[in-house]
C-alpha cells in the first residue's frame, strides 16, 4: 500500500507568481521602466512598456530588502523571455524598504507611488484611496493626476491589515483566498468581534468556536470589526465617493462589502489589474517621467 504523503497546507499563503502581457512584445517598446515596491509582507516588481502594464512579479518579502528587491525583479524578468535588467531604461524603488533597492535609479515615497498607481488602475476619477497593505493602512486623498493632497497612516496596529487576515485564516484553517466568500455563508450578519486587536481576536475567535459558532460566522464577525476599524481611519481624510482600495486586502470581499455598507456607497472596483501592484505601477510611471525628463536635458 502506498504511503500517504503528509500535506501541510499553509492557509495564510496568498498567490505569488509572475505574469506577462501576451499582447505586447518588449522589443516594440520605446521606453521600458520598472517599479519595485518592497513592502513589509509582500514585494512587487512591475515592468511598464511606454507607460502600459507589461509584466510583473509578486512574492513574499524576505527579511533582507535588497534580496527581496532582486528576487522579485528576477521573477518579473523571468516572465519575459529574452528581457534583461540592462534593457530597462529606468528603475524606481518604493515601499517599506524603498531605498534599499540596489539597482534603482531613484527612490520615491510609497504614498506618492500608491496614489499614482491607483490613478493608472482606476483612471483620473479617483479621489480617495485606501491602501490595505501587509502591515499598515493608508488613507490617501489625491487629485485627478494622482498627486497626494493628504494622507493618514497607521503602522502600529495589525487590525485591518493583511497580517491580521493571515493570522485569522491560519487559525480558522480557511485558505485566505476563500475568506471573503466564506464570510457571507451566514444566515444573519453576526455582531462584530468586540476587540480589533489581532492577538485578542484570536482568543475571542476560539471562544466563539467553542460556543458553537460556525467558521463562516466567526469570519463574518471578524471582517465586520475590521471594516469598522478601517472606516475609522478613512474618515480622517476627506472621503470622496470616488473611492478605491489598493493592496492585497482589496481582494477580500468580506471586508470590502462591509466597508461599503459603512461608507454608504459602493467603491470603484473596475480594474483588471491586481490591486497589490498599485505601488509598483506608480513607481514605474514616475520612472518613465524621470527618464523622459533626463532625455530633455
Amino acid at each position: 500500500m502506498a504511503e500517504m504523503e503528509e500535506q501541510t497546507i499553509e492557509y495564510w499563503r496568498w498567490d505569488e507568481g509572475n505574469w506577462k502581457n501576451p499582447d505586447m512584445d518588449f522589443k516594440d517598446a520605446e521606453i521600458l521602466t520598472a517599479g519595485i515596491d518592497v513592502g513589509s509582507v509582500s514585494s512587487q516588481a512591475v515592468i511598464m512598456a511606454d507607460g502600459e502594464l507589461f509584466a510583473y512579479g509578486n512574492t513574499r518579502s524576505g527579511y533582507n530588502s535588497r534580496d527581496s528587491a532582486s528576487n522579485v525583479m528576477n521573477m518579473a524578468l523571468e516572465a519575459v523571455p529574452g528581457l534583461k535588467l540592462e534593457d530597462i531604461h529606468y528603475v524606481v524603488g518604493t515601499g517599506y524598504g524603498r531605498v534599499r533597492v540596489p539597482f534603482a535609479n531613484k527612490a520615491i515615497t510609497e504614498i506618492a507611488c500608491h496614489a499614482r498607481g491607483a490613478n493608472y488602475m482606476y483612471g483620473p476619477k479617483v479621489r480617495t484611496i485606501m491602501d490595505m497593505g501587509g502591515q499598515d493602512l493608508k488613507a490617501i486623498s489625491c487629485d485627478e493626476r494622482g498627486k497626494v493632497l493628504n494622507f493618514v497612516m497607521n503602522e502600529k496596529c495589525a487590525a485591518g491589515t493583511g497580517r491580521g487576515m493571515e493570522v485569522m485564516a491560519d487559525l480558522l484553517k480557511v485558505p485566505i483566498q476563500k475568506v471573503g466568500e466564506m464570510s457571507f455563508q451566514v444566515e444573519k450578519e453576526p455582531p462584530p468581534v468586540s476587540t480589533t486587536c489581532v492577538l485578542f481576536a484570536k482568543t475571542e475567535a476560539l471562544g466563539l468556536l467553542k460556543n458553537g459558532w460556525s467558521v463562516p460566522k466567526v469570519l463574518a464577525a471578524y471582517c465586520s470589526a475590521m471594516a469598522h476599524r478601517i472606516y475609522g481611519v478613512v474618515k480622517t481624510v476627506d472621503v470622496k465617493k470616488e473611492f478605491v482600495i489598493t493592496g492585497g486586502c482589496a481582494k477580500n470581499s468580506g471586508i470590502i462589502n462591509r466597508l461599503e455598507k459603512e461608507l454608504g456607497f459602493e467603491i470603484y472596483k473596475d480594474t483588471k489589474v491586481d490591486t497589490q501592484l498599485a505601488g509598483a505601477i506608480g513607481a514605474a510611471l514616475f520612472g518613465k517621467a524621470l527618464y523622459e525628463k533626463s532625455k530633455k536635458k
Binding site: L137, V152, M153, N154, E155, K156, C157, A159, T196, C197, R229, G232, V233, T236
Partner: peptide, 14 residues
C-alpha cells in the same frame, strides 16, 4: 512607547 506611527484611532495597549 508605541506613539510613533500610531494613528490614534485604536489603542493597541487597550
Amino acid at each position: 512607547a508605541q506613539a510613533d506611527g500610531c494613528d490614534q484611532k485604536i489603542c493597541s495597549l487597550g
